[in-house]
Lab assay of single mutants.
Amino acid sequence: RHRTIFTDEQLEALENLFQETKYPDVGTREQLARKVHLREEKVEVWFKNRRAKWRR
């Protein structure tokens, strides 16, 4: 597996949602994934990693 490289637009959308909710539900993740052309799984893992970074 290779590392996903997120575009600035994707990161902006992910960060904006993170400010709203640290734990978006699957529907919200799917909606964002469609909007920025990512797989929902990638969005889910990004949030998991972003929460870990936020806790540190």
Rank of each mutant, 00 (worst) to 15 (best):
H2V: 13
Q19M: 14
K42M: 14
D8I: 07
E41V: 05
V43K: 02
T7E: 03
E9M: 10
K53M: 09
E30V: 11
E41H: 08
D8W: 05
Y23D: 08
K48Q: 11
F47Q: 00
K22V: 08
G27Q: 15
L38R: 00
K22Q: 10
E12D: 14
R51W: 04
L11I: 08
R34E: 08
L17K: 07
T28Q: 12
K22E: 08
L32G: 01
A33I: 05
F6Y: 14
W54K: 04
E20M: 09
A52T: 10
R51V: 01
E40S: 12
K22W: 06
G27S: 12
D25H: 02
G27M: 10
E44L: 11
V36C: 15
E20T: 12
R51Q: 05
T7S: 04
W46N: 00
V36I: 15
D25W: 00
G27E: 09
Y23P: 03
E44C: 10
R29C: 08
L32C: 03
T4L: 12
E30C: 13
D8R: 09
R50G: 00
N49C: 06
K42I: 14
W46K: 04
A13L: 15
T7Y: 07
N49F: 08
Q19N: 12
T28K: 11
L14R: 03
R51Y: 01
Q19L: 08
L32R: 00
I5E: 15
A13N: 08
N49I: 10
E9Y: 06
E20G: 07
N16K: 08
I5K: 11
G27N: 05
K35C: 04
L17F: 08
R34W: 07
L32M: 00
E20W: 05
E12L: 05
A13C: 05
H37V: 03
K42T: 13
R55P: 12
K42Q: 15
A33L: 03
Q31E: 15
D25S: 10
T21L: 01
H2F: 11
L17Q: 09
N16R: 13
H2R: 10
R51K: 01
R39W: 05
N49S: 12
W54D: 14
V36T: 05
V26C: 10
T21F: 09
R39I: 05
E44F: 04
R3N: 10
R39C: 15
R1W: 06
L38E: 00
Q10S: 02
L38D: 01
A13T: 04
E20N: 13
Y23H: 05
L32W: 01
A13H: 11
V26F: 11
Q31D: 08
V45G: 12
F47Y: 10
K42L: 15
Q19Y: 05
Q31L: 09
H37P: 00
D8V: 08
R51T: 01
D8K: 15
P24Y: 03
F47W: 03
V36E: 02
G27V: 12
V26P: 07
T21E: 08
E15S: 01
K53L: 14
V26T: 12
V43S: 01
E41W: 09
E41P: 07
E12P: 08
Q19R: 09
F18G: 02
Q19P: 01
E20P: 06
Q31F: 03
E20Y: 05
W54M: 12
Q10L: 00
P24S: 02
W54H: 12
T28H: 13
N16Q: 09
P24I: 02
V26Q: 08
E15A: 04
A52K: 11
L17S: 06
N16G: 08
G27Y: 06
A33T: 01
E15C: 02
H37Y: 03
R29G: 01
A52L: 12
R1C: 15
T28Y: 03
H37M: 09
R29H: 06
A52M: 13
R29S: 08
